[in-house]
Design a protein around this nucleic acid. Structure first.
Lengths: 213, 213
DNA sequence: ACATACATACCGACTGATTGGTATTTATTT
DNA sequence: AAATAAATACCAATCAGTCGGTATGTATGT
């Protein structure tokens, strides 16, 4: 049923163009500072088309989070790090991959749903929940590799695969904040390197191989 | 020169009350969604008083970041973890302290300048720089303890005290985002625990005591 | 094949409410 | 009295959202 718009028909239907505009504009200006007409201008669409496709600005925000979850999960599913045989190499490969894509403009490599969640966690619960689902869903894709790496090495730990998976996301989100504050993506890369070192230490410091203290 | 306002004179002068209002309101709604009259209402002050004290909303944002830097640095300076003799215990004590104050409402323990930096990094450079100064200044207070802990243990590392100090801030900022997205502060505490474990591993895995791989 | 009918996608001028900011007046301090 | 702080009244601009209308695709009947 979607149909190309009159303006710039080659860019596709209005809904997708608005979701792509949301992804790009909200990452640079934030959700609240992004106006509906900012989005319409960026998408090359009228405000009539906006409110035809989304019943409110909040609905657009939630849909943009869902769209982000879909597109990024496809992106990571086809990433090369899954090819490693050793599950630990897959986990480390994921971290290296996250470091490798910290490149170009800040608004291109930072996380839409992290940005939105921080901003609207209290004001738009619908958007917040969609952001949480995106983050938690992505973290869940790491859990099996972490669990397999643990059992392959017989690692007994006082932390769970889920908590380590979430921790990787926390480090990445925090790294993005530091990069935005300083305007320097190197500080983000430094944090990702610390995260990699942490995972290495976790799996090499198994009590059976090297006792502590 | 400041003078108590007519409304609620016992609460002090208008400027301080507006800065406190900014600290509280912006942490719950974000900077862009916070209106000048939100701040005036919360401070019990008229908009005339607002623009007498701050030449614009942006100036208020930057002043709020400075105020945050002042008050938090005083807060951490008087915290108990500085008493430890071993510098590593001071670093770990800092992390434990950060975990201990993750309590109560989300808007009470999350970071004003992290929130603002993420939101306005491109739109209000003045605010962003004030936020960066606050974060970097706070991280710098950890550097000497980290450096002393390294030299006390003769630790040769491929990371610097500055990068580890910044990494602690990245983890905390990211933990706040996860807590906001999920509405659960436990996930933030989990990340802080991972950070603590990382620092422990860094200082017990010195090559001289236990070789890697 | 062609006309009619209907639903959907999009358009764009418009609105009521709210925004950040200003100008003027009043109160307080020194 | 001079200067500063706060209160009040106000404004132009912008906001999210509405609404009547048009363009397009599809189903049906002949």
């Amino acid at each position: 049923m979607p149909r190309p718009t009159k303006q710039d028909p080659e860019r596709g239907d209005a809904r997708t163009r608005l979701l792509e505009a949301a992804r790009d504009v909200i990452r640079t200006k934030g959700f609240a500072a992004t106006t509906v007409s900012d989005l319409c201008d960026s998408a090359g669409v009228t405000s009539g088309a906006f409110f035809h496709n989304f019943k409110s600005k909040e609905a657009l925000g939630a849909a943009a989070a869902d769209y982000w979850a879909e597109t990024t999960s496809e992106f990571f599913r086809s990433a090369p790090y899954h090819a490693h045989k050793d599950p630990l190499d897959r986990v480390l490969g994921y971290i290296d991959f996250r470091g490798a894509i910290i490149d170009g403009d800040l608004a291109e490599f930072t996380c839409l749903v992290g940005t939105m969640a921080q901003e609207v966690y209290r004001t738009y619960p619908g958007i917040r929940d969609a952001c949480a689902a995106s983050i938690l869903g992505h973290a869940a894709t790491l859990e099996t590799d972490i669990a397999e790496a643990m059992s392959a090495r017989n690692l007994q730990a006082d932390w769970t695969p889920a908590s380590l998976a979430l921790h990787t996301q926390a480090v990445l989100q925090g790294a993005f904040i530091l990069a935005k504050a300083t305007g320097d993506r190197e500080v983000a890369l430094d944090s990702v390197n610390h995260l990699r070192r942490y995972v290495e230490l976790l799996f090499q410091a198994a009590p059976s191989r090297c006792e502590a203290r």
